[in-house]
């Protein structure tokens, strides 16, 4: 299915949000996820199923003033 991840259109076979995070090689512990502009708590990542056309933002805290 087609998903927009951090602004880029990608093709993914991941069924759940957690699968996508791992597929992309990210460490889930340091991430914040937003699906269609709704923040999804980490506990729900394993059960949140992805749909074609979902817009996903994977964010992390960085240095800033």
């Amino acid at each position: 299915m087609n998903i927009k991840l951090n602004g880029n259109n990608i093709e993914s076979n991941s069924l759940f949000l957690m699968d996508l995070v791992l597929e992309k090689g990210f460490d889930p512990a340091s991430l914040v996820a937003e699906v269609n502009q709704e923040v999804i708590r980490q506990e729900a990542w394993k059960s949140l199923s992805l749909k074609d056309g979902d817009s996903i933002e994977l964010l992390s805290f960085v240095g800033g003033g």
Partner: peptide, 18 residues
């Protein structure tokens, strides 16, 4: 102390700032 939020950078080397 302030922190900022950004799209995840797969090349970040030192891990989570928190």
């Amino acid at each position: 102390i302030t922190v900022a939020l950004r799209r995840v950078d797969p090349t970040a080397s030192e891990g989570n700032i928190l």
